[in-house]
């Protein structure tokens, strides 16, 4: 039995987080998926899965100076720096959550927007469950560039394997009308990219935690559902006697994670 350090109180997500704008939203439902919910309950009751801490990977991409690092720092450290310090290559943070009573971690990879670091940063796109494309709401051309950033991030990942988010930062710099106009443009691009749109300010903190909770909830639920699917398909195969007999629960779980196609 492994122990897991307690998750800080403000990282406990009990209600299913809502999207920002229903017009550019990945999932409209109000509550957790039923299957996932019961799987979580079951797991939490049995303390099963506590030794296998779930971890997903999110990569944050976008032009230089759009505010990627600030977005992450606001959420992970509740800090904001007015001075621009370019990210060198890549950096990461790990945030631990508790969702539906289960522990969950998110690796958040902060990549450099500067062209000269692209070859380094792009090596970290691989294996992402979440792609967060960021633009500066006060600099409209950075919105245009998000398409290209997404193409590059998707190139390193399985098609349809990633949740995609489009995040506009620095909304504190815009008037209400400007904000509305930019959001309208962004929603259009988000739906083209199959992304969920969020509009945030790292300076004031507006929508930042809501956004990351949404990222955590969607990726967590997806991980649980994938696991259910894999274990049910391998259960059939165990019945068929096609795989080695397993006795330890741990080993069984590992077998279950093997892709069902082979």
């Amino acid at each position: 039995m492994h122990f897991i350090p307690p998750v800080s109180k403000n990282r406990i997500i009990s209600k299913f987080p809502k999207c920002y704008n229903p017009q550019a939203c990945l999932q409209m439902k109000e509550d957790w998926n039923e299957k996932a919910k019961s799987a979580c309950l079951d797991r939490a009751a049995r303390q099963h899965g506590m030794d296998r801490l779930k971890m997903s990977k999110a990569v944050v991409v976008g032009d230089l100076n759009v505010g990627k690092t600030c977005l992450i720092n606001r959420f992970c450290k509740d800090a904001f720096d007015r001075d621009y310090k370019a990210t060198i290559g890549v950096d990461f943070e790990i945030e631990r959550f508790e969702l539906s009573g289960l522990p969950y971690s998110l690796q958040i990879w902060d990549t450099a927007g500067q062209e000269k670091f692209k070859c380094i940063a792009s090596a970290y796109y691989r294996g992402a469950q979440v792609i967060i494309t960021v633009f500066d709401m006060a600099d409209i051309k950075t919105l245009e560039h998000t398409r290209q950033w997404l193409v590059e991030a998707l190139r390193e990942n399985e098609p349809n394997a990633c949740f995609i988010f489009l995040v506009g930062t620095k909304r504190d710099l815009l008037s209400a009308e400007e904000c509305q106009r930019t959001e309208r443009d962004a929603v259009k691009i988000a739906s083209e990219m199959n992304a969920e749109f969020w509009s945030v300010s790292s300076k004031t903190g507006q929508n930042v935690q809501e956004f990351f909770f949404r990222v955590a909830a969607l990726s967590f639920e997806d991980a649980i559902l994938q696991e259910i699917e894999l274990s049910s398909s391998s259960a059939v195969r165990i019945g068929d006697g096609e795989i080695l007999k397993v006795d330890a629960g741990d080993q069984q779980d590992r077998a279950a994670r093997k892709p069902s196609c082979c």
Binding site: F3, P5, R126
Partner: peptide
């Protein structure tokens, strides 16, 4: 944090799989 909170009586390894470079996927790290 664990020692402090008294949850873990002895040194214990591997609470979590740290990110690798470039990081492994969830499956791989598990």
């Amino acid at each position: 944090q664990l020692y402090k909170s008294g949850v873990m009586p002895q040194p214990q390894q591997n609470m979590e799989n740290p990110p690798s470079d470039p990081p492994l996927t969830t499956e791989e790290s598990i």
